[in-house]
Computed example of a mutant assay.
Amino acid sequence: MQLNFKKSYKFAFKSASYITLFFLGVFVLYHFFIAPLQLVFVFGFAFCLFLFSFLLIQYRVETFIYKRVKKIYDDVSLLENTSFRNQPITTDMATLTKEVQKFARDKKLEIETLKIREEYRREFLGNVSHELKTPLFTVQGYLLTLLDGAMDDKSIRKKYLQRAEKGVERLIYIVKDLDMITKLETGDIHLDLSRFNIVEVIQNVFDLLEMKAAKKNITLTFDTKYAKPIWTLGDREKIQQVVTNLVVNSIKYGKEGGTTEVGIEDLIDNKIIVRITDNGEGIEKQHISRLFERFYRVDKSGARSEGGSGLGLAIVKHIIEGHNEKIYIESQFGVGSEFSFTMEKAK
């Protein structure tokens, strides 16, 4: 390792000066009180003494500090921090202190990050277990009931098989969403970019969800009539999924007889923003920052009764970010919510 000695010279200089002054004082006393000495000899000896003392003290200090500092570097190297380990050894205490403090801060940040990830992993596994357990137990319950004798009754058999099928459909839905979000998070998903009419995509979503909204008497509507197409650039299928997930979310948490309104506005020269607004129950502030986490639910019991995988908003966030766009949320509890995302215009 390369040596990098800096500020120990100051220590050596002062120490050599003290030694030289001491012996110079002795010679002066000897000159005046015992026997006169030639001044050239005195100052020549003082200079040689100073130089010898300086070099000796500097060497000894460097050796003394280097041995101990090297042990610090060796101990730190055991922690496999390559950025610290590969640096040249310095015996400059100020520099060393800064390096060790930076190393300690980096390690503290790394440990805190690992703790957050561990907590996130534990919560994720618990959520996956819960989400899969509910439909699994539902299917198992109906099948066991049929095997215990209910199969002989045709009406019960059909009803229970239909309910078991719904449980299987929800399992498939959850697994598909898990597969998609895994691909999105690892970047292992292809975006098929094309020019498409965003108004048409939103209308398709309205048509698909019309019956779902009708069950709660919720009106799906545009904020105004869009007579002309609005052309955007993106993956049509995935953007349709984004709109679908956001509209489904607004229906799920919307109030009876409410509305879900979609508006499209020019943002800047080459961008538009799509706003999906509802007058539902709204979201409390403490939940907003976590809405896009996997399986995070504001109302844990109520949301599960509505079904879904708990991954809808997480998928939305990853798809939008995959397009290098932004998604925003504004909500007032008891008043309603607005989700919005940007898209690039197409000529």
Rank of each mutant, 00 (worst) to 15 (best):
I327D: 08
Q332A: 07
I34P: 02
S194Q: 15
K216L: 08
I268T: 13
G258L: 03
S77A: 15
F292I: 00
K347T: 08
Y66T: 01
R68S: 08
R68I: 03
T113G: 00
R297K: 08
Q332F: 04
G257H: 01
K67N: 13
I111W: 05
I264K: 05
L55P: 03
I264H: 04
E165G: 07
R85P: 02
G280A: 04
Q203C: 01
V69Y: 10
R290Y: 09
A214M: 08
I251R: 02
V262H: 05
D74V: 03
I65G: 01
I181H: 04
T82L: 13
E210N: 11
H287A: 07
G234V: 08
T224Y: 02
L178Y: 04
M1F: 10
D179G: 01
F295V: 02
E118D: 10
F11E: 11
T259Q: 06
V262D: 05
I57A: 10
M211A: 09
T91A: 09
T95V: 13
E112H: 06
I202E: 02
H318C: 00
T221A: 14
D299H: 14
K102M: 09
I19V: 15
F32K: 12
K300S: 10
K326W: 00
I268N: 14
F333P: 00
K14Q: 13
D177Q: 03
L161I: 06
M1S: 11
F339L: 07
R85I: 09
N127E: 12
K252I: 02
L49N: 12
R157F: 11
I189A: 00
F54K: 11
N204S: 14
L96N: 07
L29F: 15
V128L: 12
Y66P: 00
Q140V: 11
A213Q: 06
A35L: 11
S250C: 08
Y73F: 15
E237K: 14
K6P: 03
L136V: 05
V168L: 14
S194N: 12
R290V: 01
K14A: 15
V274R: 05
Q140S: 12
N217G: 03
T90V: 07
L24A: 14
G312Y: 03
Q38E: 15
I230Y: 10
K14N: 13
E265R: 13
A35I: 09
Y253K: 08
A16T: 07
R236G: 02
F22M: 11
D192E: 15
K183S: 00
N245F: 09
I172D: 10
D266V: 06
T145M: 13
N249K: 02
L24C: 10
L291N: 04
F33W: 11
G336D: 05
L267T: 01
Q38R: 11
Y296N: 03
V175I: 13
P135W: 03
S15K: 09
L55D: 06
G234A: 10
R297D: 02
K158S: 07
F43G: 08
